[in-house]
Design a protein around this nucleic acid. Structure first.
Lengths: 221, 221
DNA sequence: TTAAAATGATAGTATTACTATTGCATTTGT
DNA sequence: ACAAATGCAATAGTAATACTATCATTTTAA
């Protein structure tokens, strides 16, 4: 049995250690997905799981810390998927192609983690995750390790780009541009379609991103 | 004398029509830049300008509408700058190069608009603007015209890309990727530097973005 | 100069984001 | 088997937020 273990200070009490903790995590995904972070409160969550606000506050300082926890879970899970998928592949081009697919394709439920709805979590990542770092306290929360999972995955993927083009100066930027920009593209396709071509006929985010990455690599080889 | 005129329903009463309105706009830029959108309230703004909450509510429904107003102002201003800068230039490559510079270089104060601090506004665009559309009511606010300026500029810039590569399918996506991803890169450089190479030695956002756009165009020509 | 519009002053409401305390129930170590 | 520790529910309370309403006063424009 696999468990995503988050060791940083992104919780007060580890929600994986109790039934209540797991309910907080799984039901917060449902509620944030449904109502958005703005309209999500610990009061509503406590009613949903037949518990109390005070109990939830024993696990997370506030809803932003809970969101950061979900974020970290997601990026740890993504790292696990990446490592699983590129295992035994030696050609860095092939690795990179798989990675871009993992980062930009629609998400499927992972039966390894029964209490996490990965499709709903992915929607949250797309529309809410930036709110963890777009805050005035970002430098503190960064020190607390809120973004460790995201940073470590970015570093790993940048290294694969450098396997192909060691002298390319923007490997980390290219990865984070694809991730962050890719999230925008998915969101725009759903809500502001004149800002994107994704979801037009014969167009896909995967194709768009692969084209960018391999064009840049080719030119900088 | 030039004035940025925003005709859509992104205000209750046009702030350009009164002294109080102009103070609301200029001082909200100062306060949002300083405290962030989360800690910015109409109460604080009213004290800053020696007015009352009720008066501010006569101009804007809430702080998100005010932020949308600032956004629209910014993108209208950018469109004006783009048109000014590419005027009389025929070569689409040269046009595109200038456009990428305008979109990704640091902003300077524009003496044409004395009550707007464009440098502060640019910081707000980078760290707060996504909060206008990352909301559950995005489809309504989109209908109200909150994003019209941004969409019209994107369309115009995409058309310039199509002057070079008419068959490229992702012109709008490439523009919005550079804009949104570019904002992330600037923010990361300031707060999460391990996610970007921007600001490392001999690295710049302008160079990174030009390389991407011209690599993609070259490959798709 | 007079009516209309804009603004200021004040008050009030529902909700949010917490914090504190108490007491019961269950688990754990010995 | 018993004490201690932990986990959780219940309740109450506070300061701030995001508004809305009313009415008096000032400014402006015909």
């Amino acid at each position: 049995m696999i468990q995503i273990k988050l060791n940083e200070k992104i919780y007060i009490k580890d929600p994986e250690t109790s039934e209540l903790g797991r309910m907080i995590v799984s039901d917060s995904i449902t509620l944030i997905d449904k109502w958005g972070l703005e309209n999500f409160t610990f009061r509503k969550l406590s009613k949903e799981i037949n518990s109390t606000e005070a109990s939830i506050y024993r696990y997370f300082e506030n809803k932003y810390q809970l969101l950061a926890y979900l974020n970290s879970w997601y990026w740890n899970w993504m790292e696990y998927r990446v490592n699983f998928s590129i295992n035994n592949i030696v050609d860095p081009y092939a690795k990179l192609e798989i990675i871009i697919e993992l980062l930009t394709q629609p998400i499927e439920r992972d039966p390894n983690f029964t209490h996490i709805d990965e499709k709903a979590l992915h929607r949250i990542i797309i529309s809410e995750s930036a709110k963890t770092y777009l805050r005035k306290n970002v430098d503190e929360t960064n020190k607390e390790g809120y973004f460790k999972s995201y940073k470590s995955l970015t570093k790993q993927l940048a290294n694969i780009i450098r396997e192909i083009t060691p002298e390319y100066k923007y490997a980390e930027s290219l990865i984070s541009l694809i991730i962050e920009g890719g999230h925008s593209q998915v969101y725009f396709a759903d809500h502001l379609p004149s800002l994107t071509n994704v979801n037009e006929k014969n167009c896909s985010l995967v194709e768009f991103c692969k084209d960018i990455v391999f064009s840049v690599i080719k030119k900088n080889k």
